[in-house]
Design a protein around this nucleic acid. Structure first.
Lengths: 204, 204
DNA sequence: GTCTATATGCAGATAGAC
DNA sequence: GTCTATCTGCATATAGAC
């Protein structure tokens, strides 16, 4: 008898699966429209449940979107942890941006909160999100200083500037522009954006 | 008697001045919050007039915001036209980004419509805005190909990628992040963002 | 053209049956 | 927990006096 609470566990699993579906739909919607423009009706319709049911899982729109962003952040941390320790730090930084761009192209990640997003204020007031953000920033910050010490990343740039730049490029709107143009494959777009980010526009 | 219609002209001037004030307030507000989050009440309060008066000048929120963006675009074109013809094209491109970043820091320019902004759809349906955007893009496109021909701008990058990247950097959220940090002056921030844009993050 | 007051519609959130 | 139906508030836009 190795199933002490089979029924409870099953229900919990269903519950969790439903919540994951809600979060996934939320992420998709947030990647297409701004936080203010996304409605709870949109989410309910995308998931295929009634709006009231949504509120049984998440007590407010703010909480729902925070949870979605926290989930994304968790996936990012999992990815960062999966990188081989012996990999050069610069490669890890590029892998970080590449991962984000892939999510962006797959419509799995909201274009992140720049200053004029009301979602940003909500997130910055959310302890779970902040905690995750700090953890990622610490990790990435280490790689930045290591890459600078190796001389492969411009050592004259303040690490914080590099960090912010990486975050900004991780949701670079150029990706969307190029995708709309339809001239390039997803992989080409990622390669181009990575190149402009790390090599710059000027000739070398 | 060189004043044929003095009274009409004066009234027109007042009218124009009032509209300019409205547009300026709109730009300021749009630089702080997203299109969807900005309300006509915000604008009315910022200008110091009643909301109904606003609708005497602009018949809808969409039209108002379009007019604000068209105004910005006009100023950009004026600036671009003012650049000395003998200036190297790469310098002109940098001047373009610098000008935008200055506006951004002065809260005079909305963080531009990336894909997830509902304002973007509105703008793309507006002939005046599109016309201005095409004119600027043609001008900038010429400079890009010239700079590539001179070998100072990476010739292996598709010109459209460079163009989109310049547009994206012109409202780089990194500016806001660094400004919030309070560690750098406005000029330092501009210099840093320009450097990451043209020189990249990797060491040279 | 400017105002106060109001109409209209929509979105966040809730009530209550099942 | 899920649903339908509803409450509430707010934002766009308008009416109508001055």
């Amino acid at each position: 008898m190795q199933t002490p609470q089979p029924k409870v566990s099953f229900k919990e699993q269903m519950h969790q699966a439903r919540e994951d579906a809600i979060l996934q739909s939320t992420c998709r919607l947030l990647s297409d429209k701004a936080y203010d423009a996304m409605t709870m009706d949109d989410v309910a319709q995308a998931v295929g449940i009634a709006k009231a049911s949504l509120y049984k899982h998440f007590c407010s729109k703010e909480e729902l979107c925070c949870a979605a962003m926290v989930q994304i952040l968790g996936r990012l941390r999992t990815f960062l942890d999966s990188l081989a320790p012996e990999q050069p730090p610069l490669d890890k930084l590029q892998a970080l941006v590449r991962w984000s761009l892939q999510r962006l192209l797959a419509h799995e990640m909201p274009l992140l909160p720049s200053r004029n997003s009301s979602l940003r204020a909500v997130l910055m007031a959310n302890p779970s999100y902040l905690e995750g953000l700090v953890a990622v920033s610490d990790q990435v910050g280490q790689w930045i200083t290591q890459a600078q010490a190796q001389g492969v990343l411009d050592p004259s740039l303040p690490p914080l500037v590099v960090l912010y730049t990486l975050y900004a490029r991780a949701c670079d709107p150029v990706v969307g522009f190029l995708k709309e143009g339809g001239q390039h494959s997803d992989e080409e777009i990622i390669a181009l954006v990575l190149r402009t980010c790390f090599q710059g526009l000027a000739a070398r």
